[in-house]
Structures are given as C-alpha cells and as structure tokens.
Design a protein around this nucleic acid. Structure first.
Lengths: 117, 117
DNA sequence: GATAGATATCGATGAATGTCGATGTCTACG
DNA sequence: CGTAGACATCGACATTCATCGATATCTATC
C-alpha cells in the first residue's frame, strides 16, 4: 500500500495552505476535521496541554489520571483518541505508559488555522 | 451584567498562552472547546475557509449554498454555529446575507494551538 | 398588499460521542 | 506461579449532533 493512502491526519495537515489563503478542498477538509474533533473536547484539550507543557515533554498516564474527576477508562479513551489522530505518541516503559505531544503537528495545525494573516 | 460574564469563545481565546506553554485550566478549556467544535466539522471547515478566502473577505449565503451537496437549512445551521461562537460576522444587505470571517479570532486560535514552538 | 425569492427556524430521526463499571492484558515482584 | 498494580478494551447508556422536509420571516417588486 502506498504511503499516501495511509496518511494520518497529522501528516495531512502539513501539506495545506492556511484556511484564509484558499478554499479548503472537500477531501482535505474531511481529513483535517478528525484532528480538530480530537482537540474539540475540554478533557482532551487539557490532556494534550498537560502532556505538551510537561517538564520532559512527556507525561505518565499515572499522573494524568489524577488531574481529572473522571474514571481511568475514560482518560484512557481520550488518550487513545489523541493518539489515533497522531497528536500524541505512546511509549511503554515497564508498567508505565508515557505520552508525548507531536509538536510539529500542533505547529502545522496552528498555522493552518491562524496562518496567512 | 459585567462583560466578563458574557465573553464569547473568540474573546476567551485571545487571553491564553499556547497549549504547550502551560497546562490549560479546566475553565479555560471548557470555553475554548466550543470554538474548536465549531470548526471540527468538514462542512463548517470548508464554509469558514470559503468565506475567509473569498475576494472581499466576505461571502453571500447564496454563493455558499451551491458549493455543497446539502440542503439550504443545513448550510444555514452550520453558518449559525460558526456565527454563534464568534468566528463569522453576519450582515444583511437587502435580501442577501453576507458572512465575514473574524481573522483575528482565527489568528488567536491558531497561536493557541501552534504557538510557543 | 399579493407574490416571489432568500434565509432562518422548527421538529423529527438516525448516527456519533462521552461516560461508566466490569473485565482483560501485561509487567514486576514475592 | 500467584498476586498486585497500571493501563486498555468491552458493552451499555444517555446525550449531542448532522441532516432533512416543512414552514416561518423578511424584503423587494409588481
């Protein structure tokens, strides 16, 4: 399978000019919307921010769970959503799982929305 | 009522540091998420881009309707969502309604996501 | 003021989503 | 190996959401 057929949302976002520069193609919009959906939730937005702003650039799930008034499966679910679209990287070390934010993906997404101004 | 109690989502987004700089407060995340939800839909993303990239910075609903394979009420609904969060401004001239993108809101949102890198 | 056209609102419906408790999997350590 | 702890998956439930057809509102024109 060619790589272009398996582009993750974060790979897609790097290739488009800003919203205000040219009308977004239908196909492009449909690939980018899932990325925005992923961060369009208060819990996931905070999760992403917590991980991205964390000291070493990564955070352990064990730390994240305590930051919310939500069950452990719910946090796990939200992390999975962020991971699936490619905004978070996962690495398991021993019993613990660490997530790391993909900063260049965030930068690309940011300039897609706010760029060209 | 004081103005701070009626902050629209776009007014909120201007006041926060980027995601990666510091963990987003719960309250802040809950005010910004609706903004992201508004653009986290392929149709609305294209609508916003169509309006923002349009020649005079504004677009007539009559032009937008034809760009989608959707019913007129559906387009009207999506425009309303974008308008309610403050990403689109509405102005009626005669029988026609024109929408204009709030560029500074888009810029603020973009730097919230991609800034600080 | 009756008519036509542009846009918004309403009510209904099927699909997607956030949350939970229960359970499964995997790792380390007695 | 059996137990404990960290995290993921599963199945269920309530809520939200995108869409539509029907209808209302508003404006210009005849």
């Amino acid at each position: 399978m060619s790589k272009s057929l398996t582009l993750t949302p974060v790979e897609t976002v790097a290739c488009c000019s800003p919203l205000v520069s040219a009308p977004l193609a239908e196909e492009t919009a449909e690939r980018i919307a899932p990325l925005l959906k992923a961060i369009a939730d208060p819990v996931r937005l905070r999760l992403l921010s917590l991980v991205a702003a964390h000291a070493d650039g990564e955070a352990c799930v064990c730390d994240l769970n305590g930051a919310f008034d939500l069950s452990q499966p719910t946090i796990s679910h939200h992390l999975k959503v962020l991971h699936e679209v490619g905004l978070l990287e996962r690495s398991k070390r021993g019993v613990w799982v660490y997530y790391r934010a993909r900063r260049e993906a965030l930068a690309d997404l940011g300039s897609l929305i706010g760029g060209g101004l």
